[in-house]
C-alpha cells in the first residue's frame, strides 16, 4: 500500500505540472490563437532560472518562485512582441511552427552549454522553525510517509491554478480577457488596449509554465530537455480536456496525473503511454474532448 500511495503522490505532482502547463496553453490559445510549442522550453527555462539565481547570485528557492516566472514571462512577452504578433491573421498552424522553432533554438542553446544530464537543485532548508527545516524532510501520516516538498508542490500548484481560475472567471481583468477571446475587435473599440493585453496574456501563460519549472527543479533536476517530452503529454492532456474551460484544464490535468500514477503501480509498462491511449479513447467516444467545444 505504501508504494501505491507513493505513486499516487507522484501522479498528483505530475498532474500539477500538467494542470499548470495546460492552463497556460489554454489561456494563450484563447487570446493568440496559437498553440505554444515553446511551452516546454519555457518551463525548462523557469527551472534553469532558479538554478542560475541560486548558483550565480545566491538567491534561493522562495525568491526564485517569484523572480523566475516574471523573468521568463518578460522573455515571453518579448517573443510575442517581436515574433508572434506578426502571425495575426495567418493560419493557426504557422504559430505552431514558429513556436516549435523557438523551442528548438532554446533547447539547443541550453544543450550546448549544459549537455543533456541533470543539474541538481536542492529542496530549500529554510525558514527553520523548530523542527522544520524549510521544505526538507517528511511527515509520517500513518498510512504513508509524505515528503514535505512533494506535498507542498501539489498544494501550491492547486492554489495557483485556482487563483488563475478566479482571475479569469471572476475578476474584471478576466472579463476583458474572456471578451477579447470572443471578439477582440469590439473589445478594442471599447477603449481597451487589446494588443497589450495579448502580450500580457502570453506573459501570464508562460509565467505559469516557468513556475511549474521552478517547482519541478528539486524533484526532477534541471535538464535542457526536461520540457521537451512533457509538452507532448500536455498536448494530449489538452486534446482530452479541450481548451474551452479553465476549470476543465485544471481537473483534466490533475486527473490524468493520478491515472498515470495508478498505472505506474498496477501496470508500470504502460505508464509512459497511458495518457496517449486515453487520448485515443476520448477521441473515439467524444471527439471534441471532455469539456471542449467544437474546434
Amino acid at each position: 500500500m505504501q508504494a501505491l500511495y507513493a505513486q499516487l503522490l507522484v501522479g498528483l505532482i505530475n498532474g500539477s505540472f500538467y494542470a499548470l502547463l495546460s492552463l497556460g496553453l489554454a489561456v494563450i490559445f484563447g487570446m493568440l490563437n496559437i498553440i505554444n510549442f515553446a511551452h516546454g522550453a519555457l518551463y525548462m527555462m523557469g527551472a534553469f532560472c532558479a538554478y542560475f539565481l541560486l548558483n550565480l547570485a545566491g538567491i534561493g528557492y522562495w525568491w526564485a518562485l517569484i523572480i523566475a516566472p516574471i523573468a521568463v514571462g518578460v522573455f515571453g512577452m518579448i517573443l510575442e512582441r517581436t515574433m508572434l504578433q506578426w502571425l495575426a491573421g495567418l493560419d493557426h498552424l504557422y504559430g505552431l511552427l514558429l513556436t516549435f522553432g523557438i523551442a528548438l533554438i532554446v533547447q539547443g542553446l541550453f544543450q550546448n552549454y549544459f549537455g543533456s544530464s541533470g543539474l541538481p537543485y536542492a529542496i530549500p532548508d529554510y525558514p527553520q522553525i523548530g523542527d522544520w527545516r524549510g521544505l526538507q524532510g517528511g511527515i509520517n501520516l500513518g498510512f504513508m510517509f509524505l515528503p514535505i516538498y512533494r506535498g507542498w508542490v501539489v498544494i501550491f500548484s492547486l492554489v495557483v491554478c485556482l487563483a488563475t481560475w478566479f482571475l479569469i472567471e471572476k475578476t474584471r481583468l478576466g472579463a476583458y480577457l474572456r471578451a477579447a477571446t470572443e471578439n477582440p475587435t469590439l473589445v478594442r473599440a471599447f477603449g481597451i488596449n487589446v494588443p497589450r493585453m495579448i502580450t500580457l496574456t502570453y506573459g501570464l501563460g508562460v509565467g505559469l509554465a516557468a513556475l511549474a519549472g521552478v517547482l519541478s527543479a528539486p524533484i526532477n533536476q534541471v535538464r535542457p530537455l526536461m520540457g521537451a517530452d512533457l509538452i507532448i503529454v500536455v498536448f494530449a492532456v489538452v486534446v482530452i480536456g479541450g481548451m474551452g474551460s479553465i476549470m476543465g484544464s485544471i481537473i483534466t490535468g490533475f486527473a490524468l496525473g493520478v491515472i498515470e500514477g495508478l498505472t505506474k503501480y498496477f501496470y508500470p509498462e504502460a505508464s509512459n503511454t497511458v495518457v496517449f491511449v486515453l487520448m485515443v479513447l476520448v477521441l473515439l467516444v467524444k471527439p471534441t474532448g471532455l469539456t471542449g467545444r467544437a474546434a
Binding site: R178, A179, E182, N183, F190
Partner: peptide
C-alpha cells in the same frame, strides 16, 4: 459576449 454574464457585459 457569451462568456460574460449580463453584469459583466454591462461593466465591460
Amino acid at each position: 459576449f457569451a462568456s460574460l454574464d449580463v453584469r459583466e457585459n454591462l461593466l465591460l
